[in-house]
Design a protein around this nucleic acid. Structure first.
Length: 115
DNA sequence: CCATTGACGAAGA
DNA sequence: TTCTTCGCCAATG
């Protein structure tokens, strides 16, 4: 196994990491969620939770991004200025997820681990 | 190359 | 319990 790396290799790994994030997200069942930190742990590349968020931000259409929430069970998308408020919650509620009064969901109930 | 900015998260105050 | 601070790492100017 070669240790030396050229630009192409690194670029390839970056794209591969993005691909991995998308794959994990696509495996989350309807009505279940994962946190950014969970995805970070599951991935071999050890991408930081922060980087995971960025990858999902750049995910292709059809990716169930709404099933990824923060460690508190809240919708991080609501923090973005140019993003429809409440969209993530609405999409999740359509899948049967119920939110608590404080706007978060119960991870004890909805958290899912790939198996 | 350096500074700044996030769809994060854990630990302190 | 709420608010800060800091580490994290990809992307952007």
């Amino acid at each position: 196994m070669g240790v030396k790396r050229v630009h192409g290799d690194v670029e390839g790994e970056r794209l591969n990491a993005q691909q991995q994030v998308i794959e994990v997200v696509r495996r989350i069942p309807r009505g279940r969620v994962m946190t950014y930190g969970q995805i970070s742990e599951v991935m071999a590349s050890r991408l930081s939770p922060r980087a995971v968020g960025w990858m999902i931000h750049r995910c292709p259409d059809g990716t169930p991004w709404q099933r990824v929430v923060n460690a508190s069970g809240g919708c991080s998308t609501d923090r973005l200025p140019d993003f429809p408020k409440g969209l993530q919650r609405t999409l999740l509620e359509e899948e049967g997820v119920e939110f608590r009064a404080n706007g978060t969901l119960d991870l004890e109930v909805y958290r899912w681990w790939p198996g």
